[in-house]
């Protein structure tokens, strides 16, 4: 009787040791593998360059500049009154990725966009396409004067980067 108890005790202890060893092994392997995987993410020097300031004072109405931010082009456009009006009057029901124009700008004449097509990352061309905004030559996506996707394979609107006005004529990207 007592011997039987003993052997089943032993079995339980063996089970516990197996589970504990496996668990420790999994955590250990995970901890060892993570640095090997995470080293591929952007490093500190890349992250340190993640914000820049841009002077807007020389941009005239209707003009657009492109600046390089995080290795990507950023379009900064001073929109004309007509462009603002046409962007604002669009019926949201027509849009693939519905977003009102005023949610995409901080001041309605300044449109700031990451100039990277949301399809596969090409740089759209300004002033082309069927909607008075941008056109991506790679796979034919059309964006309107608010940078919203209107036609073509891109799933979402052109991204609006994180930015803030640090003066009347200066913005800080990132």
């Amino acid at each position: 009787m007592s011997e039987n108890n003993n052997s089943s005790d032993k079995k339980n202890r063996r089970d516990f040791l197996t589970v504990a060893t496996t668990a420790a092994g999994v955590v250990g392997v995970g901890a060892a593998v993570w640095p090997v995987i995470n080293q591929m993410n952007p490093d500190s020097s890349v992250k340190a360059l993640a914000s820049i300031e841009v002077d807007l004072s020389k941009i005239k109405e209707g003009q657009e500049i492109t600046v390089l931010w995080r290795g990507k082009p950023v379009f900064i456009k001073k929109r004309t009154k007509e462009e603002i009006a046409s962007a604002e009057k669009v019926d949201l029901k027509e849009l693939k990725d519905p977003q009102p124009d005023n949610k995409r700008v901080k001041k309605s004449e300044w449109l700031v966009l990451v100039g990277v097509c949301t399809h596969l990352g090409c740089v759209p061309i300004s002033g082309k396409g069927d909607y008075g905004g941008w056109f991506c030559p790679c796979h034919g996506s059309h964006y309107d004067s608010s940078g919203r996707i209107r036609k073509g394979p891109a799933p979402t609107n052109l991204e609006v980067p994180t930015y803030e006005f640090v003066g009347d004529n200066k913005i800080k990207l990132g």
Binding site: D43, V46, R70, K72
Partner: peptide
Amino acid sequence: VTWLWGDYSVGDSTLNR
């Protein structure tokens, strides 16, 4: 994609790897 690039766009880190 950011992990593959090691950056916020295709760049130096991407080429090296």
